[in-house]
Design a protein around this nucleic acid. Structure first.
Length: 266
DNA sequence: ATGGCGTGGCATCCACGA
C-alpha cells in the first residue's frame, strides 16, 4: 500500500493535477491539507471517477483537510480529541477549525493534519500552534496506550522545521516561526510519544525539502523547507519499505507550493 | 530596505500563507 501527504494549496485550483498525480503515482491513500473550500465545494466527482472516496472537512476558504482513499474509508473522525479552537479576536469565542480529519483506510488509521502556522513570534497564533501540537501529542499517546499495535499515520503539514538542515539557510529564519525551540520541542513531543518520521531515513538531508515559497525563485534556487511529515506508530513504521518527496510535482505552471510526500508500506 | 507569488472572497483590496 502506498500512502501520501500533500498540502495542495486549494483543491479546486489543483483538482486536475491532483487526480493525475494520484493515478500516475499509483497512490492508494493521500492526506490533503489546505483544500481551501467548504465541504459542498469539494470536487468529489473528479476523485470518485478515478476510483477514490473522500472524507473532507472544510468550513470556509481557510484550512480544510481531507483523506482520499481507494482502499476503503471507515470511521471518519473530524478533529482529534482535545483539539483546541481558534479565535481571531478577544470578543469572539474560540471555535474549531478544519485542521484534522481521520479515517481508517486498508487497516491504517490515517490522519490529515494542518498544524497552525504561528504567523510570528509575538502573535497569539503561535501559542495556539503550540497548544494544538500538545493536544495532538496527548491524543496520539492515548491511541497508543489504548492499542500499542495500532497502525496510525499522522500525516500533514506540520509547519515546523525540526532540524537546522530542514531549511536552506538558518540565518534567513532569525526571528521567525517554524524553527524555534518551543515549536521543535512540540514536534518532538509527538515523536517521543511513539510516532516516528518514516521519511527522513529514506530521504535524508540536507537539501531535501517539501515546501518552496512561490516568491523569490525559491524552487529553482532549491531554497525550501522540510515541514511536511508522515509520523507513524511503531506497528506501522515497521511496515515502511521506502519513502520519498516528489519534487517533480512542484514543477511547472499550476503547482502547489508543497510537494507530495510518499510512503510505501510492505 | 522592501517585496517579489498564489488563492479565495458578499473582491477590484484584503486576509492568509511559511
Amino acid at each position: 500500500m502506498r500512502i501520501a501527504t500533500w498540502n495542495v494549496n486549494s483543491v479546486r485550483a489543483r483538482v486536475d493535477r491532483a487526480v493525475a498525480w494520484l493515478q500516475r503515482s499509483d497512490v492508494d491513500v493521500v492526506a490533503l491539507q489546505e483544500t481551501k473550500c467548504k465541504d459542498a465545494q469539494f470536487p468529489y466527482e473528479a476523485f470518485r471517477e478515478a476510483g477514490y472516496e473522500v472524507a473532507h472537512v472544510g468550513l470556509s476558504q481557510w484550512n480544510g483537510v481531507a483523506v482520499v482513499s481507494r482502499v476503503g474509508l471507515e470511521d471518519v473522525e473530524v478533529g482529534f480529541p482535545g483539539q483546541p479552537g481558534w479565535s481571531s479576536s478577544a470578543d469572539v469565542e474560540a471555535a474549531p477549525e478544519a485542521r484534522a480529519i481521520g479515517a481508517t483506510c486498508g487497516g491504517v488509521r490515517v490522519w490529515s493534519l494542518y498544524v497552525p502556522n504561528g504567523r510570528s513570534l509575538e502573535d497569539p497564533h503561535l501559542q495556539y500552534k503550540l497548544e494544538w501540537l500538545a493536544a495532538l501529542r496527548d491524543a496520539g499517546a492515548g491511541w497508543l496506550a489504548a492499542d500499542p499495535q495500532a497502525q496510525v499515520a499522522l500525516c500533514g503539514d506540520w509547519n515546523v522545521a525540526p532540524q537546522d538542515d530542514d531549511v536552506w539557510d538558518m540565518s534567513a529564519f532569525e526571528g521567525s516561526t517554524h524553527v524555534t525551540q518551543p515549536e521543535r520541542d512540540a514536534f518532538y513531543a509527538v515523536v517521543d510519544a511513539g510516532f516516528a518520521d518514516v521519511v527522513r531515513p529514506h530521504a535524508p538531508g540536507p537539501g531535501t525539502y517539501t515546501y518552496w515559497d512561490y516568491k523569490q525563485l525559491r524552487f529553482p534556487r532549491r531554497e525550501g523547507m522540510r515541514i511536511d511529515f508522515a509520523l507513524c506508530s511503531p506497528a506501522l513504521a515497521a511496515r515502511v519499505g521506502g519513502a520519498s518527496v516528489d519534487r517533480e510535482e512542484r514543477k511547472g505552471k499550476g503547482a502547489s507550493d508543497h510537494a507530495p510526500v510518499v510512503v510505501d508500506l510492505v
